[in-house]
Write a protein that binds this DNA or RNA. Structure first.
Lengths: 215, 215
DNA sequence: TGCATGACAGGTATTTTTTCCTGTTCCAGT
DNA sequence: ACTGGAACAGGAAAAAATACCTGTCATGCA
């Protein structure tokens, strides 16, 4: 069952997913920015307007969403889809110390010339990985309100790692892993104003490593 | 990816599945029997004609096929390949404040239950994006030796953004953008022990936003 | 405070798809 | 052999969606 309402809702959801408005999504897909205006979803005589199949094809291509996921949006599914594996991504890499030398950037600051390595980013979409959105200022100066942290519950933990911890009491916090013993976990605070914590294993519900942070 | 060919192939497959011709399917769906003629799949000037989403909706309803099954036909029918074709960079998202409430994580700390949004990570492979590897300790506490910063020269800059800057003198540094005026750029230091900087535009070769940092 | 840009409503012109129609061919039943 | 209905190609008219355009409002930045 494919309904007019569901198609428009899927378009809105797809836009939101890319932090775009409906007009931003249309523009991104090479359509007129007014194409998906709410005011144009019914014609003057009240008849539903359906976006064309070609327009859908264009937004699907522009956003890179898969047909399966677009189907999920069409069905109004909000739950996270099943585990998946993302293809590895690769960008040019250079060390900070070398970056100042000439020949590595063009005039606009884009990578250029020889001497760049490539780095495969750790797949952020590794099974079970999720994102946490920072709220408040308790994690400054490291994490600001609105920052997004990618957390991988399956990642190995080492001292010095930045971690998210949930206590048995229901508190979720970001800390630096100082030390793990058989009985307890010592956690340094990200914010110097907050006290460090020592949690007995019985107080610790789970702990997972932060692998990436948005800036 | 939704292509013209795939849509028409799906319509033909759906008709065949019901022992109908294309014209029979159209008729069954209340459309004109010539609607899906092969002769009408390209317009006179060779441009592909796409059946409208409304027409698709009508055949789906008339045949009783599910959206999932229609998706399978769109994807070339055949073997049901991976049931999930994941988006390349999307993970479940929740706010820190909600994360402590029950029902969002299983016992092992993996995302579970309802209430999770999705966030689409910025494609690291956006044209021109590159990685810088932190060397030394001058950017503590934010960035540690060995951390990887993803930099996007094409990203819009706003005050408060963490940026990489190259000076005309060849120095590359990470700073916080405090203010841009027509003549100068004010940069806050990441490390409280280092002085803030004001650069005249003539001293600034380029400036680019850090979009992600490894942890 | 002023300016630039994006989001959105709404109108018109243009393009595209559907509907209506006709003709030819094919096939099954009488 | 004849007839009726379906399948299909193709053309023109009507309907529907997109493109283009304008104006208003909101937001962020200098």
């Amino acid at each position: 069952m494919l309904s007019h309402e569901k198609v428009w809702a899927a378009i809105d959801a797809l836009a939101a997913r890319h932090s775009l408005s409906a007009s931003g999504l249309a523009r991104k897909a090479g359509l007129d920015s007014t194409a998906f205006n709410k005011s144009k979803r019914l014609s003057a005589d009240g008849r539903p307007r359906w976006p064309s199949t070609e327009s859908l094809s264009k937004i699907i291509e522009a956003t890179g969403i898969t047909l399966s996921d677009f189907l999920a949006l069409l069905q109004g599914g909000g739950a996270p889809s099943a585990p998946y594996e993302a293809p590895p991504s690769s960008v040019p890499l250079i060390g900070f110390a070398q970056a100042g030398a000439g020949g590595f950037f063009d005039d606009a600051g884009f990578p250029a010339g020889q001497g760049w390595d490539h780095i495969d980013l750790p797949a952020p979409a590794r099974e079970g990985a999720y994102a946490l959105q920072v709220q408040g200022e308790s994690m400054l100066p490291l994490y600001r309100d609105g920052d997004t942290l990618i957390v991988d519950p399956a990642a190995r933990l080492r001292r010095g790692d930045r971690v998210v911890v949930k206590t048995a009491g229901g508190e979720v916090m970001a800390k630096i892993l100082q030390r793990q013993t058989g009985e307890a976990v010592e956690l340094l605070s990200l914010n110097p104003e907050h006290a460090n914590r020592v949690l007995r294993k019985s107080e610790l519900e789970w702990m997972a490593r932060i692998v990436w942070a948005s800036q």
